[in-house]
Write a protein that binds this DNA or RNA. Structure first.
Length: 826
RNA sequence: GCUCCAGUGGCGGAAUCGGUAGACGCGUUGGACUUAAAAUCCAAUCGGGGUUCUCCCUCGGUGCCAGUUCAAGUCUGGCCUGGAGCACCA
């Protein structure tokens, strides 16, 4: 064994050996129980960043730990390789997106291998390859046949910079999730997936996800945005037969309506406008169209609106109230019309105040009635001015008042969701073509399954502006109708990359299948994913879409489970100097440099060491240095003692006191490290325990000049156990030492260390003695003493005697093997 | 505005059940080794006060204020601060 630690040489050598020996291949057939550990697959942007390193190291350690615990572990990797950056590179540098992507994948694969990750590369999937997107297209057709994929004209989010539409989930604060430019609304005909059909199940099943953090679950629940209320229809006084339906969660306030607002885009708005008001209304609507989403949805903005000149009749009171249009009503939510109750809604209150509209109190707090002149009363209360409902609690009145509408035929109970259907078509080239054709005779028709994949054309011109490069292909558009065989045109839009990533974790179970996206048998064998690890930024996007896909594919009969990810770990960001690493800030750290200077084991150790996985991690050069020093320290411990180490060590109890203590420390560390990994993957404390054990061995060794046989056996036990415990993290160094000690085979095929409960505790305990809850003394005692004896020991303390002299002992509390608290009075 | 998460030394953080607050590391300071440096090793490191002063004693301390308890970083109620998500969603 070399005296010094040379990670670069060691790491390269073992990576080659592992690859040659196929060490990380996962067989489908095994007697062992399965475990599926998965990192969110990356976009092949060119180079790994530290966020990747953190993500993949966490999952890798989990996978290796589970493997050593006797599981057949599936730990695959792949590429989310469709998407705009490849296309942008093509437009900028004239590169072929496929080639650009392949080169990035090749480089990043090399980096992943340098990190020592235990992937089964035989299961690699790449979403931009025809053998993958063929099945994305096939799945689209299955959803289409089920009525879950459809095309409609709608107001959609348009990013001018990216030249494509976006899903609601991809608009962050009114801006494009990818390029940060302001998103506009456009009316276009687009493809959607009917995720709203699953709103209820997506919400309810969150309760089943015990292994997910509450933060992610609440974010999804908020996004789905369920609310319960009523639809109420109001007759229009000036137009016979015309009604305006509203959605409200506050039917209890219906007697307090003093006006009604429709969105500027409301479908019947022209019919509801009188000739005198037409000009003003038109102008208002034109202005609303010009505004960006951000301007329009700002809650800071003063509310504006104009009257339409018409009136509705309140069926509960017979009162008439005016109709207005105002842009605080949203056409996409509910019915696009809002009943306004200024006394009990802050928004309505603001609006009514500005335009001098009347206010009618219908709910009061009996203890503290308010006239609502200074603000809306939105708390619970009792109904007033509400005819037969007077005196009723408002929470009960919701039910009763809606029931009256149902009985009277002018309303019904209604559950409303905020979630909108998922817009999946993109006007871009580098994506999976939507496999449908347009036929003049047959309409919209899916491509025949045997004709899949619909290949992306390669005869395209990337220099075009204002339209998708795919439209420049001379060969792509023209096709024949799969039904009638006549002339037809292909759909030119491609699918959102989030469609590709909604099912990739299923493909890993059966990556080479040419008949189906995956066989039911294999997908049901491997899934759901036991542990999914990735960034919080996908809390809604990818994780919601994948849950929808899983439920839809289950309903289609392709699989038997209905939640894809049993446990989810959302790792924190990697920071440097307190802010997120980013190229624009210039505070990035290049993984390649770390590999070169310190080796992958140091990088792996450090990225896990300072913070628990879910928290943000602040990168520090001193921290890396510290981890590198620690590995040197471990290396030296082994190399200095190599002649004393016995491969087949044996411990024969009883041992001498010092040796017994060291052996116990080792057992305690096995127990605690195992528990720390099992319990939420607390790798930071795991690593502090590696250090504690190393320190303990050094300290023990420092007290011995010469080693006898027993010493050598105990030392061997301690060091070999340390190396094994470290092996999931410091994968190369552990393997190297393992072989230097004369073992055959890979350390990564060894079973995880076991502890003995009788030994995983110190032989002596420190008894804490409290008087009235304050620590007053600490006394060493034998591990085996019972509670009564502990009391006696505590009372024998000189300090305690002094403190309780002349006082009455009220009671004595004993915590077994730990603490005695003497409560005294006087 | 609503929802969720967090708040512990100079810093990252530790502390299954309520039971020794500050593990482990970083940093800092002092020392050993060295011609010197690097590397390595050893020691100290929450604050105030006391003292017979390398020992030791005492009081306070986990964002703030109450409460429950023999005992609270941990449980309950009410705040404050920071972060994240949602947001004219009727």
């Amino acid at each position: 064994m070399k005296e010094s630690y040379f990670p670069q040489e060691i790491e390269k050598r073992w990576q080659e050996v592992w690859e040659r020996n196929n060490v990380f291949h996962t067989p489908d057939n095994s007697d062992k129980p399965k475990y599926y550990a998965l990192s969110m697959f990356p976009y092949p942007s060119g180079k790994l960043h530290m966020g990747h390193v953190r993500n993949y190291t966490i999952t890798d350690v989990i996978a290796r730990f589970k493997k050593m615990q006797g599981y057949n572990v599936l730990h695959p990797m792949g590429w989310d390789s469709f998407g705009l950056p490849a296309e942008n590179a093509a437009m900028k540098h004239g590169a072929d997106p496929a080639k650009w992507t392949d080169e990035n994948i090749a480089y990043m694969t090399k980096q992943l291998k340098m990190l020592g990750l235990s992937y089964d590369w035989q299961r690699e999937v790449t979403t931009c390859k025809p053998d993958y997107y063929k099945w994305t297209q096939w799945l689209f057709i299955q959803l289409f046949k089920k009525g879950l994929a459809y095309k409609k004209e709608a107001a959609v989010n348009w990013c001018e910079n990216c030249g494509t539409v976006l899903a609601n989930e991809q608009v962050i604060d009114g801006k494009c999730w990818r390029c940060d430019s302001v998103v506009e609304k456009k009316y276009l005909s687009q493809w959607f997936f009917k995720i709203t059909d699953y709103a209820e199940r997506l919400l309810d099943d969150l309760d089943k996800l015990d292994g997910w953090g509450d933060n992610v679950k609440t974010m999804q629940a908020n996004w789905i945005g369920k609310s319960q209320g009523a639809i109420l229809r109001f007759k229009v006084k000036e137009a016979e037969g015309l009604e305006v339906p509203v959605y409200t969660t506050r039917p209890d306030t219906v007697h307090g309506i003093t006006y009604l607002v429709v969105a500027p885009e409301y479908k019947d708005i022209e019919k509801l406008t009188t000739p005198e008001n037409k000009a003003a209304v038109e102008e208002y609507r034109a202005n609303a169209r010009k505004m960006t989403e951000i301007e329009r949805l700002s809650t800071e903005r003063v509310k504006t609106g104009v009257p339409l000149g018409t009136h509705c009749i309140n069926p509960y009171t017979g009162e008439e109230f005016p109709l207005w249009t105002a842009d605080y009503a949203l056409v996409e939510y509910g019915t696009g019309a809002v009943m306004a109750v200024p006394a009990h809604d802050t928004r309505d209150f603001d609006f009514a105040k500005k335009y001098n509209l009347p206010l009618k109190v219908v709910i009061q707090n009996p203890e503290n009635p308010s006239d609502c002149k200074d603000g809306a009363y939105t708390e619970e209360g009792v109904l007033v001015n509400s005819n037969e409902f007077n005196g009723m609690k408002n929470t009960e009145a919701k039910q009763a008042i809606t029931q009256k509408a149902v009985d009277g035929g002018f309303g019904e109970f209604k559950t409303q969701y905020r979630l909108r259907d998922w817009l999946i078509s993109r006007q871009r080239y580098w994506g999976a073509p939507i496999p449908v054709v347009y036929c003049d005779k047959c309409g919209i028709v899916p491509e025949k399954e045997e004709n899949l994949p619909v290949m992306l054309p390669t005869d395209v011109d990337f220099s075009v502006v204002g339209k998708s490069p795919i439209t420049t292909s001379k060969t792509f558009a023209e096709t024949t109708c799969p039904v009638c065989g006549g002339k037809a045109r292909r759909e030119m839009d491609t699918m959102d990359t989030f469609v590709c990533s909604s099912w990739y974790y299923m493909r890993y179970s059966d990556p080479k299948n040419t008949e189906l996206p995956f066989s039911k048998e294999l997908v049901d064998k491997w899934l759901p994913v036991d542990q999914y690890v990735g960034g919080i930024e996908h809390a809604i996007l990818h994780l919601l879409y994948s849950r929808f896909f899983t439920k839809a594919l289950k309903d289609i009969g392709l699989l038997s489970f209905d939640e894809p990810f049993k446990n989810l770990l959302t790792q924190g960001m990697v920071l440097k100097d307190g802010s997120k690493m980013s190229k624009s800030k210039g505070n990035t750290v290049d993984p390649d440099e770390i590999f070169e200077n310190y080796g992958a084991d140091t990088a792996r150790l450090f990225i896990l060491s300072d913070s628990p996985p879910a928290r943000d991690f602040d990168w520090s050069d001193a921290g890396v240095e510290g981890c590198y020093k620690f590995l040197n320290r471990v290396w030296r411990l082994v190399s200095d003692n190599q002649q004393n180490l016995i491969k087949d060590y044996k411990l024969e109890f009883p041992l001498t006191r010092e040796n017994d203590d060291l052996a116990r420390t080792v057992h305690i560390m096995i127990k605690e490290i195992t528990n720390d990994i099992s319990n939420d993957f607390q790798f930071n404390t795991v690593i502090s325990k590696y250090r504690e054990l190393t320190n303990a061995i050094y300290e023990w060794r420092g007290r011995k000049a010469e080693l006898n046989d027993e010493d050598k056996n105990v030392l061997s036990f301690a060091i070999i156990t340390l190396i094994k415990l470290m092996s999931p993290v410091t994968v190369h160094m552990s393997e190297e030492i393992w072989h230097d000690l004369g073992f055959d085979g890979s350390i990564h095929d060894q079973m995880w260390c076991k502890w003995d409960d009788n030994l995983a505790k110190a032989s002596k305990i420190t008894l804490v003695v409290q008087v009235n809850g304050k620590v007053k003394d600490k006394i060493e005692a034998d591990e085996g003493v019972n509670d009564e004896e502990l009391k006696v020991i505590a009372l024998s303390s000189a300090k305690v005697k002094e403190l309780i002299a002349g006082k009455e002992i009220v009671k004595t509390i004993v915590v077994p093997k730990k603490l005695v608290n003497i409560v005294v009075k006087g």
